[in-house]
């Protein structure tokens, strides 16, 4: 039992849980009523669009690719809604068009990556520049607002009690994403493609189709997040959501998803989402500005990979310095050392 708990805590998710507890403890002691529903809702509302895109970015990175165009897509979909609204198109129709644009461009990204065989870094870099350019073409240097009240209410007010539509959608999508990744055939395919695309191809996995599906979803969900952001802010500029891609990718990687694909869990990604939300909140409490918060999260990102590596190295170095264990008695775990995975299984 105790050993089992140890093993769990040593995993990536365990480490994140401990970090989360530390940050939570700080926030709770510094802010009265931190754990009230209202405050937690506010906490989520501030970064809810990023949190939604994080879910789909996890699939993209697990399948061994990257999508740099998500934030530009958020801006573009918000701009599509704004521009159509200005032309007198009903908002629901404008939202549908925006979602269609998102799915369409996601499909195009996927086509160039999977069928033409280009690197996703290059393709989505083009999307990063191009989608933002289209948004700029649509709303130029204006700030478009004056949306109908029901639209902005949907973004700002509670739908079920204090829970907003965005948070509800995030919760539903998180469950769907977790099930799809860990309990569906599609999730297995995503891991296989990410582990080794050639091996997956030889085992009959439709690699191209899986990748195209994931990129299409990435475009669609980013567009949805853009629409939600337009509703929450009540105004759209060409620069809406600019720079969000770094935050989104950081959260996914911090959640234990390998940048090389094939590794990661939805639990880790969700923990890291909540951790970063709390961390930003805690930093605000501690009087740290937005820009510096980004720097601290950047540092956390590096340390999250560096620390375990150095730890492993240190242990390997110690082992090397000792006499060859195989020449002596059977290896016994030194007192106080952590049991290896094999020993507990």
């Amino acid at each position: 039992m105790g050993r089992e708990l140890w093993r769990r805590l040593r995993s990536w998710e365990g480490l994140l849980a401990i970090l989360l507890l530390v940050v939570l403890a700080f926030n709770v002691t510094r802010v009265p009523n931190f754990l009230t529903v209202t405050n937690q809702i506010n906490l989520f509302q501030l970064g809810i669009e990023k949190a939604i895109v994080v879910l789909v970015m996890a699939f993209v990175i697990i399948s061994g690719e990257i999508d740099l165009s998500v934030a530009s897509m958020m801006g573009l979909s918000a701009a599509v809604v704004a521009a159509l609204f200005e032309l007198g198109v009903p908002v629901p129709l404008a939202i549908l068009v925006a979602l269609g644009v998102g799915a369409g461009f996601g499909l195009i990204n996927g086509f160039f990556v999977a069928r033409v065989g280009l690197s996703s870094l290059a393709v989505t870099l083009a999307g990063y520049v191009g989608f933002r350019g289209l948004a700029r073409l649509l709303v130029q240097d204006r700030s478009v607002g004056g949306f109908p009240a029901w639209f902005t209410d949907l973004g700002q007010r509670g739908l079920i009690g204090p829970v907003t539509l965005s948070i509800l959608l995030f919760a539903i999508l998180a469950v769907v994403a977790a099930v799809a990744l860990h309990a569906s055939g599609f999730g297995r395919l995503a891991y296989e493609v990410g582990n080794s695309a050639p091996a997956a191809r030889f085992s009959g996995v439709p690699v191209a189709r899986v990748k195209i599906a994931i990129f299409t979803l990435s475009g669609l969900v980013s567009a949805l997040a853009g629409v939600l952001m337009a509703a929450r802010l009540g105004a759209v500029r060409a620069s809406t959501a600019e720079g969000f891609e770094l935050d989104i990718i950081t959260v996914v990687l911090l959640g234990g998803v390998s940048i090389f694909g094939g590794v990661g869990t939805m639990l880790g990604v969700l923990l890291s989402t909540y951790l970063v939300l709390n961390l930003r909140n805690g930093l605000v409490i501690a009087g740290v500005t937005g820009n510096t918060q980004t720097g601290i999260i950047g540092l956390l990102l590096i340390l999250s990979v560096l620390a375990p590596n150095l730890w492993e190295r240190g242990r390997a170095g110690l082992r090397r310095r000792r006499p060859e264990p195989s020449l002596r008695a059977p290896p016994v775990a030194p007192a106080g050392s952590m049991p290896s995975r094999a020993a507990t299984e």
Binding site: A122, A126, G127, V129, R132, G133, L134, R136, L137, A238
Partner: peptide, 15 residues
């Protein structure tokens, strides 16, 4: 305002 849109397209075309 079209500059970035065209630039994105051209990067894609070039690659």
């Amino acid at each position: 305002f079209a500059r970035d849109a065209i630039l994105g397209l051209l990067i894609l075309l070039a690659v």
